[in-house]
Design a protein around this nucleic acid. Structure first.
Lengths: 199, 199, 199, 199
DNA sequence: TATGAATGAGCCTTCATTCAT
DNA sequence: TATGAATGAAGGCTCATTCAT
């Protein structure tokens, strides 16, 4: 009887290899041959588990999104302090990227691809809306009602902007930390300016 | 009887066709054949004038950067009102994108490619530094010295962040205008908070 | 505890599945995977019992030939009425095909393959000669000696011709019956024209 | 300016190479690589002129059909002698095959493929009907009305049957001639049996 | 005896580049 | 200066076969 339960292992193996390949060779240079070699498996296995290269790319993108989602869930659940919660959102959004450059490159690739793939565009949209929604949820408890939407957009753009600039420049850790601090300061400033007097 | 002065015309023709192709078909779908058809020329001409597809892509990226540079030069040449100058920087940075979707897609592609091309990375870096430098030049006249760098980074990230989010969502004009307004408000807020008492 | 006597069962199972696969998906679409699924066994079993796909195909062809041979043996064993015997040959040759479309498609495939396989070509040749030989055996009792060979060739071609045309057009039963009738009429005509005056 | 008018030459070259490849290596062994080498061109050219291997196979089949059609047109136009016309149909149907074994193998492949391709099936059907129609046209002038259809089916099957049997056995010219003679004799017999007394 | 995960050779196709015209 | 027919390397995919279990 052949090995069972390999599917999970192989899928993880191949997704990890894909992330490495995209980081090292770029999207164009990420061929099934390159991925296979990195994962130490044959090329055929990709079609076997993902139905083809496109399926693997898709799964990799979903993996990144899911990872980010989990990161948020792990950082934010048990607090009623909305100020702290907003800071935690910042931490979560930079956490995975801070860990490795792989994710940063792949996020950028993912965004670029999403402009010409309805499927990826939908995923990207969900992700984008979640950030806004998370921000608004806490902002509602802290600042004037009519400023919530505007502030959420501001902070979201600030996060993505730092994120993008850091990805493009050969990032040191310091700049990541600086980005996190700056985002938090911006939040504080927003709360300070539009904060509810009594709560 | 060889036509002279065709080089300039052909180069412009092909760069424009490349921008259109990337917008319509994405980077992956932008083949030499597609570009040639859009430009109504033969495929061979690309190698003739640009030495190959890579040369054309490179030239297209440089064209975008040059365009942005000119945009900035045209909007902020002769003013000593640094508050107005900062607002003009915002306008300039969103102007080209506001005009067409072409640039937005291509910028994203450009950034992604720049991560795996030393040449493009250098161009991107120059561009990124110019924005910071332009912001700092005016901020120095308006806010406390020790806040200049930090504020420039903040505003630059804000610009890129809005820019990115707008590119990824199917942008309406309203959101572009909103982005411009929000960036200007952020600038005002920074000046208000850290502004020099006397000027 | 190894099951014994599985070989016969498995071989029959797989040959039947192969016939079904060829009928449904054509020769090109008949992959090891398709056959295995139809037979509800693993892919490995094919190599185990037939040494590979080629062996299974070969066995399937032999099975068809054997089936036809048996059909003939069952229909014409104990008769000395050679006129009836000739008619029985016709019946036998159309019997298996009349039963299902499977055989028709597979026969055609078999013939085609036999042109590039010495092994199959030999089988096909034996089969072809048996029909002629069977026809001649009875014809010798009914018609002039010098017309026997010619008539056998005529009738054999008539059988195969009808068979082929019926296989290619989406056959109704009526056309099969018509083919049988026409072949029998041809036999009668031959006997009538070249028949021995006394018998 | 590049060479013009090559399309016709290349298409003919490739179709001829395909016929040779099918004859020599069978349908399965007929790869684009094999065809290209036989035609002394690159593999890419097949997609260029035929949109892919399938297009080339299709064109090859159509070529065979067209050739047969022309053969018929060339042999039958200027005669009002319907007896001679029927004999000419026989000649035409065996002519192309008599010339080379290539066509014979390919016809068989074509027929087999046509069972799983709607497109090829339609072509095959048109071809099959044309033979019947041609036979009936002349038979109507020669034999009793109620025997026309039956006789046409008989003769058509006879032709195809000989054709098939000759293709399968390693044909000598003599057997081809014999097939032609036998078919003609069958026609004569039919006319003799069912012929119109007066015309 | 039986499985099916894994392999990798071989296939068709795409596409940047070349070169005779 | 310009063409586009032709090339052929490189890509992704299919599938018969193998082998650890």
């Amino acid at each position: 009887m052949p090995k069972v339960g390999m599917e999970k292992i192989r899928r993880a193996q191949l997704i990890e290899a894909t992330l490495e390949a995209i980081e090292k060779h770029g999207f164009h240079g990420t061929t099934v041959s390159v991925i296979s070699k990195k994962a130490n498996v044959s090329t055929g296995i990709i079609s076997h588990y993902f139905g083809g290269k496109a399926g693997l790319i898709d799964a990799t993108m979903r993996y990144l999104l899911e990872e980010l989602k989990q990161e948020l869930l792990n950082h934010l659940p048990h607090t009623k302090n909305h100020h702290a919660r907003l800071h935690a959102i910042i931490d979560a959004n930079f956490a995975s990227v801070q860990r490795s450059k792989k994710a940063a490159v792949t996020w950028l690739v993912f965004w670029t691809q999403s402009m010409h793939s309805a499927d990826l565009a939908r995923l990207q949209n969900v992700n984008s809306k979640r950030l806004i929604s998370n921000l608004k949820y806490s902002l509602r408890h802290l600042i004037a009602k009519e400023k919530v939407e505007w502030s959420a957009q501001l902070i979201a753009a600030q996060i993505d902007g730092f994120w993008l600039r850091n990805a493009l420049t050969h990032t040191q850790h310091s700049s990541h930390n600086q980005a996190v601090e700056t985002c938090k300061t911006l939040i504080d400033k927003v709360i300070c300016d539009y904060g509810l007097s009594t709560k």
